[in-house]
Design a protein around this nucleic acid. Structure first.
Lengths: 103, 103
DNA sequence: CTGGTTATACGGCATTGCCGTATAGACATC
DNA sequence: GATGTCTATACGGCAATGCCGTATAACCAG
């Protein structure tokens, strides 16, 4: 963030900072440009919304069935990047399919 | 797939199978409905294509900076779901941002 | 009752996700 | 030159996940 636009610095939106002191300077701000990754995602809900079985859902979105299972059974929780993916699948499933069918 | 379209049963497309023998039957087939998740993804390339610093990239797409670092430094490899996300970011970055800014 | 499909429940292990921090270039400014 | 800022590389470290398998339950159809 120095080369890219950014502007409006004076907004104590802190966040992103995490890494180090950054916010110790009062600047706060930093990275994360208004991105919100929920701590939890109702995977089963996302899947059912698309009316797909676990196997189908997994296949269509390139997620291993075993992993999907663990998520839905609350045996494991999708980590950061996985949660982001689930958000995208929830909002724009075709975008994901498009990105994958090219390859 | 019994509730969902699919029909044409006689098409060794069965799919989902993977789990067990399924292909031990000669059916081969294989699940994945035409989805291709590359085993490797050039994360740095995806990021640079968008001209973002690691911190910015991470922030914009809801990925922890530390995780992004590990990927680019080849210290860790993005797992399945993460690779899918990277594919989407590569092909349709705005879709990801859109999905996250709603929240 | 038998078969097919979907989903839940675990055992298990290698590997990752994510946090921190230290160090090294590049630049710009004083 | 010295200094401050931004960006990126390099690790130590641990809890927890990802993903594989398989066994079992619950349905529904023939």
């Amino acid at each position: 963030m120095s080369r890219t636009r950014k502007s409006r610095a004076g907004q104590r939106i802190l966040q992103g900072a995490r890494e180090a002191l950054a916010f110790a300077r009062g600047e706060a701000d930093v990275s994360k440009y208004r991105v919100h990754v929920p701590a939890e995602v109702d995977v089963k809900k996302v899947r059912k919304k698309l009316k797909l079985s676990q196997t189908e859902f997994a296949s269509r979105f390139g997620i291993p069935a075993a992993t999907l299972r663990d998520w839905e059974q609350h045996r494991r929780r999708p980590e950061g990047p996985a949660r982001v993916l689930l958000m995208v699948i929830d909002k724009e499933p075709e975008a994901v399919i498009r990105a994958l069918e090219m390859a």
